[in-house]
């Protein structure tokens, strides 16, 4: 569960200050599937990095599962990321020349799990994303969709509070993109996984039950999506 109050983030760019976030407040409950939308420069990347504990806000409060993140130091943030956040990136960010299984095991390695438990949990996570038979393939032996599934398995392997996806279909063709959205929806519906999608793509956002729109560092709308796109529906241009 996320509670954010008056988040601001100011970057120093040379002599001028850039206000990437201008007081954003919201709450995301456990088990929600939320899309954070906005054009580039709206502050959604900054918001994502704060939600994902990659960065701390300049001011404001951010609580993740009751933990006040805004005052945490670097190593505490790293630990929180390892335990509570599962990242999915546009470019998959898998380690090259490293098997799918080992890629998925990576967060567990840093979290200090034993070798045996790591492998067991990584295998399970790969099965969950439908890649139980691809454990020993390196990323360059997998298709884009399969690579993103490995990345999702890696995000799930720590049983995180939040699955945080940054443009997860951005590097995929539309058919594969739909399959990936299907996977997110099933993880949310069947597994009760909290999912936050950060995107500029309306089609992707409309898969979520709630859509938060950002503009100029402020939340301009926060609505329940009464009629989310059903998993597997092909992309239609509006």
């Amino acid at each position: 569960m996320i509670q954010a109050q008056d988040l601001t983030k100011v970057y120093q760019m040379g002599d001028s200050e850039v206000h990437a976030l201008n007081g954003a407040s919201f709450t995301i409950d456990e088990g929600e599937m939320v899309a954070i939308m906005g054009p580039s420069g709206s502050g959604k990347s900054t918001l994502m990095s704060i939600i994902g504990c990659l960065d701390v806000p300049t001011s404001g409060k951010y609580e993740l599962d009751g933990l006040a993140v805004e005052n945490m130091g670097e190593s505490q943030l790293a630990e929180i990321r390892g335990r509570k956040i599962g990242f999915v990136f546009q470019q998959f960010n898998l380690l090259a020349r490293t098997s799918a299984l080992e890629n998925v095991m990576l967060p567990l390695t840093y979290a200090g799990f034993s070798g045996k438990e790591r492998e067991e949990r990584a295998r399970k996570a790969l099965e969950r994303v439908g890649l139980g038979d691809r454990t020993h393939h390196a990323p360059n032996e997998l298709s884009g969709g399969q690579q993103q599934r490995v990345a999702i398995a890696r995000a799930l392997v720590n049983e995180p509070s939040i699955l945080l996806a940054d443009e997860p279909t951005g590097a995929l063709d539309s058919k594969t993109g739909v399959e990936i959205m299907e996977l997110f929806q099933s993880l949310h519906k069947d597994g009760g996984q909290t999912v936050i999608l950060v995107t500029h793509d309306t089609f992707v956002a409309r898969h979520a039950n709630r859509i938060i729109r950002l503009s100029d560092g402020k939340i301009v709308s926060d609505e329940i999506n009464q009629n989310p796109i059903k998993a597997g529906t092909p992309r239609t241009e509006e």
Binding site: E79, R81, F87, F89, N93, L106, P107, Y110, A111
Partner: peptide
């Protein structure tokens, strides 16, 4: 990436 998945 390593930092994102929890490396200190």
């Amino acid at each position: 990436l390593r930092k994102a998945v929890g490396a200190t």
